[in-house]
Amino acid sequence: MSAETNLLDFARGPALEAALIILVFGIFWRLVGVLALPRTRDLSEPRVRHAWLGGVKTIFTRMWPRREFRPRILHWEAVSYIFHIGLAVVILGLVPHILLIRDITGLSWPGLPDGVITFAAGAALISLLALLAHRVTHPVLRQISNFDDYFSWLLVFTPLLTGLMAYYHLGGRYEDLLGLHMLSAELLLAWLPFSKLAHTVFFLFSRGVTGAVYSRRGARI
């Protein structure tokens, strides 16, 4: 009947199914593809007995900058944390999100009040804007940024924004905004495995492998 209701129906139906298939397929493809790649043999004598422990340790030690770097990047690290925690609270705390996850995986947990979600979403949105400003103004960061960085930023920003707009009925009818919100989030899911956003899964492996390699060589990690 109407394009507007069809948008939501499309987002909840075929688009969601396609996005999930691409997400799962893509993550396994990339993960197996990278893990199964040949690596050159380290012929040196291992300096520690269990190098993999160093890998596990690195996953955690890399969560906070080393003392030497702190004066320069600590504040941006904090902003980044605000963004990541805010986003996690929104994704895992909002009841409609939990219901979607329950519908797909069968897993469920209690949700958070909407006031908390709104605060977290607002914090994530503002920190995301700040991080973008930082990226385009910082001379080095700007040099090493490419399309992936900006597009990924957009795909994280859009669901947050449309989600808030839908909830507060700003700028359109709820079902249209909800449809846009779901579609943008689905685009994010489909884009995730093939972009820098894959760090949501890959950070464990990249840190672990780096930590294990350096630990084996006796570096302080």
């Binding site: 397929f25 593809g33 790649l37």
Partner: peptide, 16 residues
């Protein structure tokens, strides 16, 4: 989704 995962594993292994 299981089939998608399996497909991903196969393609990933093939690429490797």
């Amino acid at each position: 989704l299981g089939a998608a995962a399996l497909g991903g594993v196969v393609v990933g292994a093939g690429m490797a």
